[in-house]
Amino acid sequence: MLLQLSGIWKEYQIDEQVVFTALKDINLTIDEGEFTAIVGPSGSGKSTLMHLIGLLDHPSRGKIKIRNKDITILNDDEISTLRSEFVGFVFQSFNLINKLTVLENILIPTIYARKKLDYNPEEKAKYLIERFGLQGKENSYPNKISGGQQQRVAMARALIMDPKLILADEPTGNLDTKSGNEIMKLLKELNKTDRRTIVIVTHEADIATQTNRLIKMVDGQIVKI
């Protein structure tokens, strides 16, 4: 078991009287090596769930355990460290930093790394650049390359710290079908050959069917696992 959510609630205080409940009593276990899709209409809470899994947000109630360790009691620095080492993010809008080159973007997580890396980050970045077909773009700036290329840079960035878990939030949402398919192919490959655990949030049924496990959400609740 890689990740376990038990009795997770996420509530937002809209004003004094109104409380919006984004997640209701979520219980979910994700095992190592899984390739999971979280699907659901917009507003179903799937993004909120992903933010909780990605340690970007914390639940109002409930426990999140990573490898049997309760992380809801950790402080901000410890959470940041865990985020740096445990999760790799791929976002819908790529979220690259435009003032840094492709290579520098890929290296950002290593700048903030607290653990000693047992590999040379630059060499690893170059390997990932080659693996994802980005040769020659190392010193380009993100706004000078195509969307598909940008998303592959984001994937290289997500992998540079060698995380157990890759979280992809609508990874194909901003891409044309061809680029989207390429990204999906890479994600599948990462799951199959690298044995990485992958969670995709998507509203595209077509994408969801390519995964091994489907989690369907409606109104902040999991309706089908």
Binding site: G54, L56, D76, D77, S80, T81, R83, S84, E85, F89, N95, L96, I97, I108, P109, Y112, A113, R157, M161
Partner: peptide
């Protein structure tokens, strides 16, 4: 703000 968010998501601590 967006850039700060990205850096935080990639493991930057508050002090970074």
């Amino acid at each position: 703000i967006k850039e700060i968010g990205i850096r935080r998501a990639l493991g930057a601590r508050k002090k970074d």
